[in-house]
């Protein structure tokens, strides 16, 4: 049973990490608590649903298309909401408030237009049958989530640490004003971060929608709290930290539910969060930097 429970925890943790990747990137580089992020996750799932169900596209095509569409949507919405605030030098919390208002409106619009019911991908899109290795059962969608998490984390790390673009992004995360003075076009870079993080959210929405087979307008909202925990424990903007923190959270939740009491799994997860913050105030892997919110 322990093997299966560890696999359960690993998969749950991978979904948390997958959700948190784009969130931590946006938070770390643009330093905006963007609550609309959860909506891009919903959007990705619904776009893929439309492409596969209504247009009959195969998943292999619909998946990247949905991710790109979510990214483009993110450029538009983030630009509309945040550019003006950045120009007038508004306090950081104003951006939190504006994204809060926007996400309320976006979820409500999606519910009004698409209906509140749960929808599912057509059964032909992916096999639901589980495979069994050494008494551990795992589905195709779950394998896909694990692979996607590995590929995306690897890709992001290579981007951030192996390219000039990554250097510019890290410079901007460190100090946007200095980065601007050094000739980095911060507005365009912010749009690029919006695109990448929106696309990551959309990709996560498709995969997690496939795994749980339940797509509904507020699905992104339900992930936000865990997303916050993962990016804080992992450290803001820290891709590797988000991966480790996500896996840790998933495994702790599953083991608590499996071996202690299922009613306590959230409490234990949050107690660990609080304990981590008390002992390491900048996240598990963060350096001690003091920044005002």
């Amino acid at each position: 049973m322990l093997g299966q429970q560890l696999a359960n925890g690993l998969i749950l943790g991978a979904t948390y990490a997958l959700f948190a990747l784009g969130f931590t990137l946006m938070f770390g580089v643009i330093r905006v608590i963007n609550l609309v992020y959860g909506f891009y996750f919903t959007a990705g799932a619904f776009i893929a649903l439309y492409l596969t169900r209504n247009l009959g596209w195969p998943m292999a095509v619909a998946f990247p298309a949905a991710a790109i569409a979510s990214g483009v949507m993110a450029i538009g919405i983030d630009g509309l909401l945040l550019t003006r605030l950045r120009r007038v030098g508004a306090p950081e919390l104003a951006s939190l408030m504006v994204t809060l208002g926007a996400v309320l409106a976006l979820y409500a619009t999606a519910t009004a237009l698409l209906g509140p019911d749960i929808k599912r991908f057509p059964a032909s899109v992916i096999g639901a049958e589980a495979m069994e290795f050494a008494a551990i059962r795992i589905t195709q969608a779950q394998v896909l989530i694990l692979l996607a998490t590995i590929v995306l984390v690897g890709g992001l790390l290579a981007l951030m640490h192996g390219t000039r673009l990554g250097l510019a992004l890290r410079a901007m995360a460190e100090n946007p004003d200095a980065a601007g003075l050094m000739g980095i076009d911060t507005i365009r870079l912010a749009a690029l971060v919006s695109f990448i993080s929106g696309a990551l959210a959309g990709a996560g929405g498709v995969l997690i929608g496939l795994n749980f087979n339940a797509i509904q307008p507020y699905m992104g909202e339900a992930m936000m709290l865990r997303g916050f925990v993962v990016i804080i424990v992992g450290g803001l903007g820290d891709i590797r930290g988000a991966l480790i923190a996500g896996l840790l959270l998933g495994i702790v939740e599953v083991l608590t539910a499996g071996y202690i009491a299922s009613g306590l799994k959230e409490a234990v997860a949050f107690a660990i969060l609080v304990a981590v913050l008390w002992s390491r105030p900048a996240g598990l892997f963060g350096r001690a930097v003091t920044r005002r919110a």
Binding site: F27, A261, G263, A267, F270, V274, W278, P281, A293
Partner: peptide
Amino acid sequence: LSGVYLAIATIGLGEVLRAVYLN
């Protein structure tokens, strides 16, 4: 703690208490 770290730690308190009320 400061900034968002404090924010999340204090939100965590609310979630822990919620579990207490429920259980």
